[in-house]
Every structure is written in C-alpha cells, then in structure tokens.
Amino acid sequence: MIFAGSHLSSGKGYEAMGRHALKLGEDTFAFFTRNPRGGRAKDIDPKDAAALRKLTAEHSFGTLVAHAPYTMNLCSAKEDVRKFGLEMIRDDLVRMEMTPHSYYNFHPGSHTGQGAETGIRQIAEALNLVLRPDQTTTVLLETMAGKGTEVGRSFQELREIIDQVELQEKLGVCLDTCHVWDAGYDIAGDLDGVLEEFHRVIGLDRLKAVHFNDSMNPRGSRKDRHQKLGQGEIGMEAMRRIALHPALQGLPFILETPNDDAGYAAEIQTMRSWFA
C-alpha cells in the first residue's frame, strides 16, 4: 500500500487541511510552511496543530510532507540570499515540531554559476547549522530535473550533500517522478534499474516520500513541467508500475499535478484502484 495525497493550502489552518484531505479521499498531504514564494510565516495556533494531530491519528494518516518555499536557496552566489534561506529553514524546523515526526522537503538549490561542487558544500554547511539532535523532523532532499544550475540533478549529487552532513540520520530523499524523468532516469522503461541505482548510490532506506507526477517533456529534457497522471511522456502504465513497486510501499505519494480538487480526487481514486 501507499499513502496518497496532494498539496493543500495551509492558509485556513492545520485542522482544515486535514479535513480537506479527507474530503478528497487522501490519507496524507503536503503543505507549504509559508508562502511558496517566501516571506514571513503565519503564526501556528497550538490548538489547531493539536486538532490536526488528533485527526490524522484517528484516520490513520501516513507521514505528512511539508514543503519549503521555492525561493529558499542555500547555495546562491549571493550571500544575502543564502542567509535568507538559512533563516527560513531554521525557523521552519522549529515550527515543524508542531507536527512532530513529519517530513520537511526542500529543493536543494541553484548554485547560480558557482559550480555544483561549491553549491553542494554550501547546502551541507547550511544543514550542519540548522539540524538538531533532538528534532523529530526528517529533512528531505528532493531529486531535481537539472534545469539551469540546479543542484540535485543526479543521485550522486544528493549523495555528496549527505556525505558532508554531520547528522545524517536526520536526512532522507523525496523522489519526484517528473524530475527524475526530466533528469534522464528511465523510470518508464527501466524502473528496477533506476531504483537499483538509487539504492547503490544513496540507499533505499533514505527514500522517504514520492512526488507523483507525469511529465510534459521527453526524458532527459531537464525542463521540469509536471503533467496529470497518464497525460504525459511517462504514461499511466508506468505510473501504475511505480505506485505498485515493492520498494515503494508504505511511502507517502504526493500529487503535484496541474489539477483542481476534483482532479486530485479522481487521481487519488485511480491510484486506489491499482491496489484493489
């Protein structure tokens, strides 16, 4: 089995997100810790967070997957941008303890011309400053499509970040199906081979979540444009094989497809039907 959900807005509160997820047939969901474009985070009502924890326990939800703002870049060539990103992730990891034992997913960043080696070092340095032994949150590095100067376009780049982090037990990986496809990994024609490579380079024990998206682009395009399930270049049959793969069972699968609520509910129902 998998836990299936989509990205929900935290604007109406934590418990409201949980109830919205239930309406869509979800048993997990993702949410942005603050505006996706950055800025100050809204204060969390402890009673609201407690109500969400109660709701998710009552309905046997899987692990929730928070998402950092897209503007958070821990490896920019600009020092002020790196500092801004560091402040965001430090604050977010404190806030994440309101929903303990959740995942905090982030795009590793773009080195903006410094080179991947420098970017990898800067990301690891930032993580070494913010990760704490007592935190319950697992921080997830997301696999990236490789557009522009993105870091994380290969499993090896993520491995190099992990190797330079002291509290490695606090780190995991979120595999984005659109991103790895656009980065050149053939998850449609050789899924077993891709997962074997992931295990060899990173270790499947670090794979904690899946962003489940088809792609508008041919494999290796490095463009990162998500598509609805079965309407892209990966295709529905390949998406089904991914969801049913033994190595991925029990993980939260988060839809980031270009959909409205009705579309997400339909895709969740399709995913459920694969396990019937």
Rank of each mutant, 00 (worst) to 15 (best):
A21T: 12
A145N: 03
E256L: 08
G11N: 13
N217H: 07
S110Y: 10
A188I: 01
R241L: 00
S221C: 10
T28E: 08
I2P: 05
E125D: 15
G25N: 13
T33E: 03
P69Y: 07
C75L: 05
A243N: 12
R121A: 12
H199P: 07
H101V: 00
A68K: 05
T71H: 06
G220V: 00
Q249L: 13
T56I: 15
K228T: 00
A51S: 08
L207I: 13
K54G: 06
T149E: 04
I162S: 08
M1G: 02
A265C: 04
S102L: 15
N128L: 02
V94Y: 11
D261V: 02
L52V: 08
H226K: 09
Y185R: 14
Q168A: 13
I268K: 08
Q269R: 11
G115D: 14
Y264Q: 01
A183I: 02
D224Q: 14
D91V: 07
I187R: 10
I162G: 07
A262I: 07
L207T: 09
G39I: 14
F275D: 09
R222M: 03
T99L: 12
I202A: 13
D260E: 05
F29I: 15
R19L: 03
A188F: 00
E160S: 01
A50M: 06
G39L: 14
H59I: 04
L8K: 09
T149C: 09
P100D: 11
D186V: 12
S6L: 06
M98N: 12
L86F: 07
A243W: 01
Q114L: 09
D48A: 08
H245K: 10
D27L: 11
R37N: 06
F106M: 02
G189E: 08
G113Y: 03
M144R: 02
Y185A: 03
A188C: 03
M271V: 09
D163Y: 01
F31Q: 00
S76W: 01
M271P: 01
P108C: 11
L251Q: 09
T270Y: 04
Y104K: 11
D182G: 09
A126V: 07
R225G: 01
L24D: 07
L207Y: 10
A41W: 05
E196N: 10
A126P: 09
G119D: 00
S60Q: 06
R121N: 04
C174E: 11
I161S: 08
G172V: 12
G220E: 00
G62F: 04
A21F: 11
S221L: 03
D134M: 12
Q227C: 00
L229G: 02
D27Q: 13
S273V: 12
S9E: 10
V173C: 01
E58P: 00
G25K: 09
M144Y: 01
R153E: 09
N259M: 13
G119R: 09
F106T: 04
R53Y: 05
S76M: 00
T56H: 13
G39A: 00
E142C: 10
L248S: 10
E15Q: 11
S9N: 15
A145S: 01
A66C: 11
A247G: 03
M17A: 14
M271Q: 05
I268G: 06
A66V: 04
